[in-house]
Every structure is written in structure tokens, then in C-alpha cells.
Design a protein around this nucleic acid. Structure first.
Lengths: 346, 346
DNA sequence: GTGAAAGCGCTAACAA
DNA sequence: TTGTTAGCGCTTTCAC
């Protein structure tokens, strides 16, 4: 590797000349070497090595019509992505899996609904082979976009499905939100709590809905006064907690639909000198470690394997992409298990 | 837009046929329309619209040798990226800027030094026009990689420069870590504190080094017993705080090099019943909102405009890329201001 | 101002 | 098994 100016990169042609074979043979070797005799393949590989040959991706894509890239679309109206390590971890999982299969990750942040058109244009542009997407809201245009563009997609979190498209089902990977919520509430019950409140998340996110359902599964007859709605931010959690305290016989336990809201609730409890978990026990959801460990007392919460979910999403998508060869059955959506992490707040 | 099967996408050829002009003319119109008469350009634009034509990126890249993509490389040995909203926000800034200029963001997570080779191969492969990178450690191979690949790069955070390459200087965007640290310590001084400790970060990160320098600028004669080193994790902050307390006359204030370590320190202080800020005042760095607001008491800390830094990085890189046209002067590194955010811990 | 033609680097029939 | 050949869809001289 002469360290000087990068210079024009060698082409297949150059490698072929150096190895004394045809371009086609070099191409075969570079792409796995199927059907090329050993010694000849070795000659080619040596030439590749000596010249420092790297295939031109654009040229390859032009003829194969596959880009070797996957788009990760994150749609979020401001708040969450700012403060939530959630995405970082999920993306790490995705990245690991894509890298292992030599796919590239193109990150697309969708700033608002008006941004959807740009995303649609990009996805329709054939720049990527597939799409991984997060945080769908009820009216999210993305499923429709990918369907029209005929590009395979896997969603992080169960999408709303007002009308299931007739073709193939929507693929997703989701935590067992409902089961996790049940676990959380049962834990509180086992602690002897009798007035267990719930601070739920935005009604347009299925994760929030499912957690609420889990709460109701265990406590179908809960006092409606014990239910408050937040928006997944600490502030909303604090406000919800304040409202809960102002009403008649307050709760002796709170299950918040995420850790951020739980942290807000804990702050209010502290400010009012209410002992946790003595008088009121608190459980969160997500196990956002830096938050759950920073609260006072440290937060008992429901853990989900976020990185694993990311990996699973990528795996599902790649399998769907590979199904030109139609090997194996159609990929199916996955629901990943949750587990209660006991700290000190409940 | 006939909603049916996506079908083969229209090409320049198809648009040309429809508009009754040559491919060359369509190409000109699509690329800005310079040198094409109005009416003819309109005809072309109509045909583009009607056919839903989107240029094939691979074909374009093949001939122009520009990809319209920028790689964002994040190298982190595990811990930080998991728990730090820092990256999310910086990436958001980058994404905003790139999107505005129609560049794509390719995310590359570098898992370890052994991963460097893969990254090097990718960057040398001409898949991207430029590189944005973070979190360089002393022995980071990336600057060398980009230099050899002859690909423009901008770093987030001042890189170590053991030997400045002779060619163009290394471009970076960094917060004023030293100045911010000075501000933090002076604030503590103004509060009447006399034994101000510092919990510093890893010696191989320039941000940690600079913050330590800022501390020393203001307190050149500080008791060496007041200095502890952590690794930017909450646990290390807790351990450092414990050690500080065990030694002779403890501190009456602590400046931690980041919020995570500050939160660890606060936890220890709480456990030992030491009043904050009454007996010991605490200041962090970064203004990682979910952490700084979740601690008890809420953390006074030094804020840096992370998203702005991201935007600036992208802007710098794009300017460097545009300098084929050599318009304007060479881009220069940028140091962004910091500001103290007072909460309750100091 | 517009069109014709060459070619970017690669893969995939098809022949040999 | 290997080589020859024909494009993939686009930009860009170069004539007109």
C-alpha cells in the first residue's frame, strides 16, 4: 500500500489484466468464487490483494438492482429521541446484525408529517433494499409508503392496524408490553398493595395501550380515579402523580408506563415527603438504566432486551429480503419477553 | 399514481420519449435546467411528474463519482453509547443539516479496534463522500484511515494530535470544555466553597483532559487529595466520591467531569446522609437533561449545545466537500460556547 | 440550445 | 470452467 495520493482506484479490468484472466472470472472470484478452479482463483485473489481492489458499489448496484443498504426510519415529534437511550440501543442491535451480513445502515430521521414526502421519495428511489422503522403513530404514513414502494419493512413496536392490507401481513418486533405490565402490577399486589394506580402513556402508541391493557387484565375493577394519562415525559409523570395525590383516598402504589414518567412521579413524592416504597410503591417500565439508577430510591421496573429487539428486526428484514430465493417459510412477527428488575422503589 | 404493483421505475429514456426530447435534455432539466429553454424545460418537468420519475442514484454515482452520502462513525467501547443521549442529539443535528442539503447519513458503529479494518475498507470503497466521527481515543486509527483514503473528515470533539499530519489540519467541532470547567469551578468558589474536589474523566479523552485543565486553571494550588479519576460512568463517580469522603478533611464541593459521574456521587452522598448542597455542593458537565433532572437534588451542570455541534460538524464537512469549486476560504475548526445551568445541587 | 454517442465499472447470459 | 458480449441508467464532451 503505497502511502501516497489515493489515486484512481483499480477496476475489475485492472485486476483481470494483472491476473491474466477475464473480467468475468475476476467477478466470479470476488463474489464467492463459485465455479472457478482453485489455482486460477488464487491468482485472482493475489492480484486483488496487490492492487488493493475494492468493488465499485455503484456499478454493482446498477446491474444487480440491489443496494446492500437498509434504511432505519425514526419518526418522533421531538421529545423522546432527545432523551431516550432506547433508540441508541436498538440501533446498536440493528447495526450489529447488518454489519455481520455486510449491509449498510442509512439513518432517516423524520421530523414531522411534512417530512414524510421526502422519506417517501427516498424510499421509492430504490436507494435501499428494505426499511426498519420505529414509533409509529396512528396516522403514520410510513406503512402506506413502503407498501406502495413495494419495499420490505419491519417495524419496531406493533403498528396500529386499522385496516390490515390484504397482501402480506405487517412484520414487527415488539416487547411483551401487556405481559410486562401484568407482571409489574402483580408484583405490587404481592407486596400487599390494594390501591394501585396507573400512569399511562399516549393513547396513540400501541406500547402505551398494551401496558394499560396489562394493568386492566390484573385489575379489571380498579377505581377509575386511579388512572391518569401522561405522554411519556417526566413532567407529565409528575403532573399525573400530583393529580393522583389530590384525589380522595390516594394510591398506595403506582405503575407508570415508562421510567421517565416514573421518575417524575418520584420527584413529586419526594417533594411532598411521601416515603417510597413505604407509603407508595412505584414501578416503571423500560429499565432505562441511567434513569432507573439515578432516581431516589432506584426504580423497580420492567426490562426489555432492547438491543436484542434491534437484532431481531434486522434479522427478520434480511430474511424477507432473501426470500427471492424463497428458502424457508415466510418470516413472522416476534414478541420478545420482559422481566421485572427489582431495585428499591417497590 | 396508479396504486398497483410498483413495476419497473421509469428511466431518463422514458421521460425523454414522453417529452419528445433527448435524454441529454432531460438530464439537464433534472439537474437544475441550466441552458435549457423555458418551454422545453416545462415539457420535461411535466413528463417527470406524470411518470413519477426518480433518478437512479447508482447510475448517477457511477458517472459522477460522488455518492451524496456521508458516513457517521461512532467508536465507543460499549458503555457510553448505551446510556448517553448525547449521541442521539448530535446525530439529530447532523441529520437536519445533511437532509437540508440532500445528503444521506450512513451510520457506522465501530465495535472495537478489530472493527477498524472493516470501517477502513468501507471508507476506502468510495461509498461515501465524507466522514463525521466521534469519541476518538488516543490510539484511534480513524484519522489515519481517512487520511489514506483521501476522504474529508470532521471530528466531534478535539482529537488527540500526537503528530499533526503535514497536509491540511484536522477539522473538528468541540465544546469549550476548558472554559466550561472554569465557569463551574468559579461558580463553586462564588458560593464560598474552599475545598473544591474534581472527579475527572478518562485520561485518553480530550474532553476529560480539558475539563481537568479548566479546574486547574482556577485552582492551581488545589490539594492533590481533592482529585479523583473516574471513567464517565455513574459507578466510577460513586467510587470516586467515596474515596474523597474517606480522606482527611473532605471537600465542601465537587465538580464532576460529567453528569453521569455526578449522579453517582450524589447517590453516595445521599446514602451517607450528607446534605447537598448544604454540606457539599455538586456540579456536573453536559446537561444531560433526563439525568440532571432525575437526581436528588436536581443537578447544576454545564450545558453545551449538542445538536448545534452536530449541525456545525455537518456544515463544515459539506463546505469541505464543496471545495472542489474552491469557493470561499478553507473551513476551520469550531469551538462552541458552554453555559452554566443552575438547578439545586450548587 | 439541443442531440448523438461514448463510457462510468460491474454482472449475467450465452458461447466456446 | 472460462471468455465474450451486452447492457444497467446516467452524465458529459462534442458536433450541429
Amino acid at each position: 500500500m503505497p502511502d501516497g495520493i489515493p489515486g484512481p482506484r483499480p477496476t475489475l479490468e485492472a485486476v483481470a489484466a494483472r491476473a491474466g484472466v477475464s473480467r468475468a472470472t475476476v467477478s466470479r472470484v470476488v463474489n464467492g468464487g463459485a465455479g472457478v478452479r482453485g489455482p486460477m482463483a488464487d491468482k485472482v485473489r493475489r492480484a486483488v490483494e496487490e492492487l488493493g481492489y475494492v468493488p465499485n458499489h455503484a456499478a454493482r448496484t446498477l446491474v444487480t438492482r440491489r443496494t446492500g443498504a437498509v434504511a432505519v426510519v425514526i419518526a418522533e415529534p421531538e421529545t423522546r429521541i432527545f432523551s431516550d437511550p432506547f433508540f441508541s440501543r436498538q440501533i446498536r442491535g440493528i447495526s450489529r446484525e447488518l454489519t455481520a451480513r455486510d449491509y449498510q445502515l442509512v439513518l432517516l430521521l423524520m421530523d414531522g408529517p411534512e417530512d414524510a414526502e421526502r422519506i417517501a421519495r427516498y424510499l421509492s428511489g430504490g436507494h435501499v433494499d428494505g426499511v426498519l422503522a420505529f414509533s409509529l403513530h396512528t396516522d403514520d404514513p410510513l406503512p402506506e409508503i413502503t407498501r406502495r414502494a413495494g419495499i420490505p419493512a419491519v417495524y419496531g413496536g406493533r403498528p396500529h392496524t386499522p385496516a390490515r392490507p390484504p397482501g402480506q401481513p405487517v412484520l414487527f418486533v415488539d416487547a411483551d408490553n401487556r405481559g410486562g405490565a401484568q407482571t409489574a402490577v402483580r408484583h405490587l399486589l404481592a407486596l400487599g398493595r390494594t390501591r394501585i394506580a396507573h400512569i399511562s402513556g399516549p393513547a396513540d402508541q400501541t406500547s402505551a395501550v398494551d401496558r394499560l391493557l396489562g394493568y386492566r387484565d390484573v385489575l379489571p375493577a380498579a377505581d377509575p380515579d386511579l388512572l391518569e394519562r401522561g405522554d411519556f415525559t417526566p413532567e407529565s409523570g409528575a403532573r399525573a402523580m400530583a393529580r393522583l395525590l389530590e384525589r380522595g383516598p390516594g394510591p398506595d402504589a403506582v405503575f407508570a408506563a415508562n421510567d421517565l414518567m416514573a421518575s417524575g412521579a418520584l420527584r413529586v413524592l419526594r417533594e411532598r415527603g411521601i416515603e417510597v416504597p413505604g407509603r407508595i410503591a412505584v414501578v416503571g417500565f423500560d429499565d432505562t438504566v441511567p434513569v432507573a439508577e439515578a432516581t431516589v430510591p432506584p426504580l423497580t421496573t420492567v426490562n426489555q432486551d432492547v438491543e436484542g429487539q434491534g437484532r431481531t428486526m434486522a434479522r427478520l428484514l434480511l430474511r424477507a429480503l432473501a426470500r427471492g430465493g424463497a428458502d424457508g417459510g415466510a418470516p413472522e412477527s416476534v414478541v420478545t419477553p420482559t422481566v421485572l428488575v427489582r431495585r428499591a422503589s417497590a
